[in-house]
């Protein structure tokens, strides 16, 4: 059975745990790639080809993903772009999360040192 001081350590440890930059980049890349692939594939499999609006918005993704079309090949191209965007997004989320924590801890340490100096 662990004691109170251990509990405080664990709370702080979990609260200030860093996000894995590699883990976040890869996991968001996987999710975004899967999302774009499924969006395209589902539309191709279940959409009504006679519907004049079918894929009307989705095909405009080529603005962000050059080469993307609403087709099976396009779904793979879209997934590749999605993975790339996901990698960047995940990298930034983890980087900024860790950075804001480092900055906060830095400020707390500086403030502590300042007050100690003033007390002396």
């Amino acid at each position: 059975m662990r004691k109170n001081e251990d509990a405080d350590k664990v709370v702080l440890m979990l609260g200030f745990a860093r996000l894995s930059v590699v883990g976040m980049s890869i996991s968001i890349a996987v999710v975004v790639a899967l999302f774009i692939f499924m969006m395209t594939a589902i539309l191709l499999l279940t959409g009504d080809p006679g519907d004049q609006f079918m894929g009307d918005n989705l095909k405009k993704l080529w603005v962000f993903f050059p080469g993307y079309t609403v087709s099976m090949a396009g779904s793979l191209i879209g997934a590749a772009y999605g993975a790339l965007f996901g990698l960047i997004g995940g990298f930034l989320i983890a980087l900024l999360w860790n950075l804001t924590h480092y900055i906060y801890i830095g400020l707390v340490v500086i403030r502590g040192l300042w007050w100690r100096m003033m007390a002396d």
Binding site: S20, V22, M24, S27, V30, V31
Partner: peptide
């Protein structure tokens, strides 16, 4: 479901590393 995939992938990568 997407969140389960995200957390599963992330935790797996962290474990591997």
């Amino acid at each position: 479901l997407f969140c389960l995939i995200l957390s599963g992938t992330y935790n797996k990568v962290v474990e591997l590393m």
